[in-house]
Amino acid sequence: CHSECLGNCSQPDDPTKCVACRNFYLDGRCVETCPPPYYHFQDWRCVNFSFCQDLHHKCKNSRRQGCHQYVIHNNKCIPECPSGYTMNSSNLLCTPCLGPCPKVCHLLEGEKTIDSVTSAQELRGCTVINGSLIINIRGGNNLAAELEANLGLIEEISGYLKIRRSYALVSLSFFRKLRLIRGETLEIGNYSFYALDNQNLRQLWDWSKHNLTITQGKLFFHYNPKLCLSEIHKMEEVSGTKGRQERNDIALKTNGDQASCENELLKFSYIRTSFDKILLRWEPYWPPDFRDLLGFMLFYKEAPYQNVTEFDGQDACGSNSWTVVDIDPPLRSNDPKSQNHPGWLMRGLKPWTQYAIFVKTLVTFSDERRTYGAKSDIIYVQTDATNPSVPLDPISVSNSSSQIILKWKPPSDPNGNITHYLVFWERQAEDSELFELDYCLKGLKLPSRTWSPPFESEDSQKHNQSEYEDSAGECCSCPKTDSQILKELEESSFRKTFEDYLHNVVFVPRKT
């Protein structure tokens, strides 16, 4: 048989008469490798580009789960590009990614509803959504962080984005990388972005840091009482949809009607710091009717980097990364020049730590249904340095008659930039024990000054392991946590139920 035959053949030295091919099969003959313009397919066939392209389009058009959109890589027609490569849609070739590779997620039936953290986790790592997304989240724990972890990498949506009755959302900033909504599939009414009845939605994105392009379709905003109209108009300008909307697409009466839409800028007039305090004062603000001013709200939190936005980490279910302080308005003076500047002394802060701070007014709604208010920009203030805590785990070892090696770990709280350490030492008198000992005694162990690591005695271990207080009263049991108490109650309830079950099964009433 021919060298490319495997198993047997019907005619000697003829690659077209093989029972099976050793390498690849091409047009009725066995070959060692697939010549151009053919590609290896499933490690035994040679196919042309049209064959591989037909497989790709067949799966793409069917949208069946589990099928493969075949691509070409290293002269092979394979189910998908290997790690580190992405497909070129024009020629199906796998090309190296520039940075992290995109991950295209194809949605069944063309859309997916995100109504819980669990459903959001199914899209973790996706960068391109081939379909439409509907966000409908009523509640949950730590929602802002969970949504950002699972949806934060999405850069492109081919269909539309719909935010509907998501009472738990305060902001859409968890879509931190969303840059493009194509609108290839539109919501009824030709809408590519749809926001309806979101009672706590206050911000779409921080438009000073976020760009969003909507290729096709219109915007729809109705019944978002805490979303200011200025935020919607800003989205029109940034996304390129200005002029597409009709009169009733953006409701003037049901958007922002319960919001404090600040239209003035508060400026800080005085800032002073110490290692654990920050004193702030800002310019006074009074609405047209000074009785509408209820006070100020001061927001602050630790910020290692200057990239904080107002609604980071917030949701309507209680999660809030900001510390909020309510401040009463100052006494009002008739003389504008003698107006008191409101302020606040922030206490209990960490030394040498940068804080993000902003302040906003708290006002009631005027009778004319106009909203007044003022808010400052987010500023960054760093507390002063102070003395560091003591170095940890000092170790001293003498390696000769004239040297001592000293080692330690950095302090747990540096409280500033540590530039150097101060080492103090003092000579001590020799131990009298060394002169009084009889060095001729056998088995004498000389006193040693070398360091030995501390260890816990058996008594201390027994005390720590004991669940009861000892007789001397030195140790006591740790208080039980809520989960331990709940577990004990469940076990007790189970024992009672099981005992009742045994009584009912074992003891049967005697027939009379």
Rank of each mutant, 00 (worst) to 15 (best):
K103N: 03
V104A: 07
V104E: 07
V104S: 13
C105E: 01
L107A: 08
L108C: 03
E109A: 07
G110N: 06
K112V: 07
K112Q: 05
K112L: 15
T113D: 02
T113M: 09
T113N: 06
D115I: 02
D115T: 06
T118M: 05
T118A: 02
T118R: 07
A120L: 10
A120N: 02
Q121V: 05
Q121A: 04
E122V: 11
E122P: 05
L123Y: 13
L123V: 12
L123T: 03
R124P: 01
G125A: 11
T127N: 05
T127I: 06
V128G: 11
I129L: 15
N130K: 04
S132R: 03
L133K: 02
R138A: 13
R138Q: 15
R138P: 13
G139K: 08
G139N: 12
G140I: 11
G140Y: 08
N141G: 14
N141Y: 15
A145M: 10
E146R: 09
A149R: 08
N150I: 13
L151P: 00
G152Q: 06
L153S: 10
E155L: 05
I157T: 02
S158F: 11
Y160R: 08
Y160N: 12
Y160A: 05
L161C: 06
K162I: 03
K162H: 14
I163M: 10
I163P: 00
S166D: 03
S166P: 02
L169N: 02
S171R: 07
S171N: 10
L172T: 12
S173G: 05
S173L: 08
F174V: 10
F175P: 00
F175I: 13
R176P: 04
R176V: 12
R176Y: 09
R176A: 05
K177G: 07
L178K: 00
L180H: 10
L180V: 11
I181L: 10
G183L: 01
T185P: 09
T185V: 13
L186V: 07
L186S: 13
E187L: 11
E187V: 10
I188T: 14
N190Q: 09
S192V: 11
F193C: 03
Y194Q: 06
A195G: 12
A195F: 14
D197S: 03
D197R: 15
N198M: 08
Q199I: 07
Q199S: 05
N200P: 01
L201E: 03
Q203Y: 14
Q203I: 04
L204P: 02
L204N: 04
L204V: 04
W205Q: 01
W205P: 01
W205K: 02
W205F: 12
W207E: 01
W207P: 04
W207G: 03
S208I: 05
H210I: 04
T213W: 05
I214T: 05
T215K: 05
Q216E: 01
K218V: 14
L219I: 14
F220T: 14
F220G: 15
F221Y: 13
L227E: 00
L227T: 10
C228P: 05
C228H: 14
C228G: 03
L229K: 09
L229Q: 13
L229M: 08
L229P: 01
S230P: 15
E231V: 07
I232V: 03
H233S: 10
V238K: 15
G240W: 14
G240Y: 15
T241I: 09
T241R: 12
T241P: 09
K242C: 15
K242R: 07
R244I: 08
R244M: 14
Q245E: 15
Q245M: 12
Q245N: 10
E246T: 11
E246Y: 13
E246Q: 13
D249N: 10
D249T: 14
I250A: 08
L252P: 06
K253E: 11
K253W: 14
K253D: 03
K253N: 12
T254V: 05
N255S: 08
G256L: 06
Q258I: 02
A259I: 15
A259G: 12
A259T: 11
A259K: 13
C261H: 04
E262S: 08
N263P: 13
E264S: 09
E264W: 12
E264L: 06
L266E: 00
L266S: 01
K267V: 14
F268S: 01
F268P: 01
S269R: 06
S269F: 00
I271Y: 06
I271R: 02
S274A: 03
K277A: 12
I278P: 00
L279T: 01
L279S: 06
L280M: 11
R281S: 03
W282V: 04
E283R: 14
Y285P: 02
Y285F: 05
W286S: 06
P287V: 10
P287F: 04
P288Q: 08
P288G: 04
D289M: 02
R291A: 04
R291K: 07
D292A: 04
D292R: 09
D292G: 06
L298T: 02
L298M: 14
L298A: 01
F299T: 08
F299R: 12
K301I: 13
K301W: 05
K301L: 09
E302T: 07
P304F: 05
P304Q: 03
Y305P: 11
Y305T: 11
Y305F: 13
Y305L: 13
Q306P: 15
N307G: 04
N307T: 06
T309H: 13
F311S: 08
F311K: 08
F311T: 11
D312M: 07
G313T: 11
G313N: 14
A316T: 15
A316V: 11
C317V: 05
G318P: 07
G318A: 02
S319Q: 07
N320Y: 12
N320F: 11
S321K: 14
V324Q: 03
V324T: 06
D326K: 05
L331F: 06
L331Y: 06
R332V: 11
S333Y: 02
S333F: 01
N334W: 05
N334C: 03
D335G: 05
D335L: 05
Q339I: 12
Q339V: 08
H341F: 13
P342N: 11
P342V: 14
W344R: 10
W344C: 04
L345S: 13
M346V: 04
M346I: 06
G348P: 11
W352G: 02
T353M: 03
Q354A: 09
Y355E: 00
Y355Q: 00
A356V: 02
I357A: 06
F358P: 00
K360P: 00
K360C: 10
K360I: 04
T361E: 05
L362M: 10
L362H: 14
R369Y: 13
R369V: 11
R370Q: 06
R370S: 06
T371L: 12
Y372D: 07
Y372P: 11
G373K: 03
G373T: 08
A374S: 05
S376W: 00
I378M: 03
I378C: 10
V381E: 09
Q382L: 06
T383Y: 00
D384A: 13
A385P: 14
A385S: 05
T386F: 10
N387L: 05
P388A: 02
P391A: 06
P391T: 03
L392W: 04
L392C: 08
D393L: 08
I395S: 08
S396I: 14
V397I: 14
N399P: 13
S400Q: 01
S400R: 10
S402V: 15
S402F: 11
I404C: 04
I405L: 15
W408V: 01
W408T: 00
K409P: 04
P411W: 01
